[in-house]
Nucleic acid binder design. Structure first.
Lengths: 233, 233
DNA sequence: GTATTATTCAAACACTCGTTTGAAACCAAT
DNA sequence: ATTGGTTTCAAACGAGTGTTTGAATAATAC
């Protein structure tokens, strides 16, 4: 039911309705009239409470995204404190970054699932203001996690790791979208509607991500295959 | 320069312009007036040559997608013929499916790059007619590849594999999008503008995909691991 | 050459979009 | 009861959407 803020009834109702509708139809295709109808509010309420559709979108992302990234940073803080001077194990960093997201993505009641699906598809959203907003919102957490990964994987070329991180984001994006995206692969089988399936999806994605992250480095096609292949230890 | 069909000048110009613009701004945000302006055609030309904006989109996807999937099937035919009764090696199947796509994605001149980026982002497009169209267009090739994979990986539960295939699609999607998507990870480093980088991206993605595909199966999600807290013992 | 078809074009169509307006309604504090 | 500030509401705004029209032009066939 209740989600995050409650200072204004209609304001909160608009945010929740917008989250659902943006998820179902995309940012462009969702109109303010659809949102205010579902929220049982007047069309003018959006501009009154948020200023514009863009501002509504930013506010919508901010309320969840800041919390998400705070959790990630707190998790990383804990890991680094426990590790002392040693680098944190890669698997643990992966779990810190993606685990929080998966947990949020499988929280259907609180609306986290809707949001994570929306967020996943928004990564590839071409609208300029969305890209800028997300880049800014992610700057800190990505810098921290990249540094932790570099320290944990000293023998992996940084450019190589960045690509793998990029690939991992893609895999997570699809994991979260579940049967939402073009579900041609599973023919309807890829659903994790039950809350209890959180652990299953989590375990599946982690195995895959770790496997990809620790895969042997590709032999450079043109030159330098200098680094010896690295096996998961 | 020339791309696929040339029966009508303006028809082809519209398709090419649409591909570029859809890639840059998305399906919804790209207007027919933008397209016809860039194609130096009249606004009515779209409805004359294609019937509607939706039909234009479908035609645009079809002309590339059928070719792409034909290549994939031909590749798989070749592999299965060479293997005889034996199952094809998983790595080869992965290369057949994703290799064709990566090669197409790194073909900047022919427009394949634009298309693959567009296609990648379209997987998560919520518009109903797009989803239906893509599902239909992919049905055959996916059935063939799924069967080949099942045969090649008899010891992997089919549901598990379907998820991993789903994850692989996500990774490929981001690989193709490159720095296009919210490029917060690489901060501009993730670009493969040079044609010579095809091999590098290909090798990188393949290592990652194979690593993920062949990762150890996750332990049965018995009651545990609510948090990613597993201490490194 | 004329007849016929295919293609282009400027203009208009009906509709929806996000946003604005100005008056009503609500709600506390005086 | 009156005030002043906040919130709601119906209605309209200008701009932009995909699509259609009907005449003008180009290309092809007879």
């Amino acid at each position: 039911m209740a989600t995050v803020t409650e200072i204004s009834d209609t304001r909160a109702r608009i945010l929740d309705a917008a989250e659902r509708l943006f998820m179902a139809h995309g940012l462009e295709a969702t109109t303010l009239r659809m949102i205010t109808t579902e929220a049982q509010a007047n069309i003018a309420a959006v501009n009154y409470h948020f200023g514009s559709k863009e501002a509504l979108i930013e506010e919508l992302f901010r309320r969840r995204l800041t919390w998400l990234n705070e959790q990630r940073l707190a998790e990383l803080d804990r890991l680094e404190a426990a590790a002392g001077a040693e680098p944190v194990k890669p698997r643990l960093i992966v779990e810190a970054f993606f685990g929080v997201a998966i947990r949020m993505a499988t929280d259907a009641e609180g609306g986290g699932r809707n949001f994570m699906r929306l967020l996943s598809r928004t990564y590839t959203e071409p609208a300029e203001f969305v890209k800028n907003f997300l880049a800014e919102e992610y700057a800190e957490v990505l810098a921290r996690f990249k540094a932790a990964f570099f320290k944990a994987l000293p023998d992996v070329p940084q450019e190589e790791f960045l690509w793998r991180f990029h690939f991992m984001l893609g895999a997570m994006s699809y994991a979260v979208s579940g049967a939402d995206a073009v579900n041609v692969v599973g023919e309807g089988k890829l659903e994790f509607v039950h809350a209890g399936d959180t652990d299953a999806l989590y375990a599946r994605l982690m195995s895959f991500l770790i496997g990809g992250l620790r895969a042997p480095l590709p032999e450079a096609p043109a030159k330098q295959a200098k680094k010896p292949q690295r096996k998961a230890a």
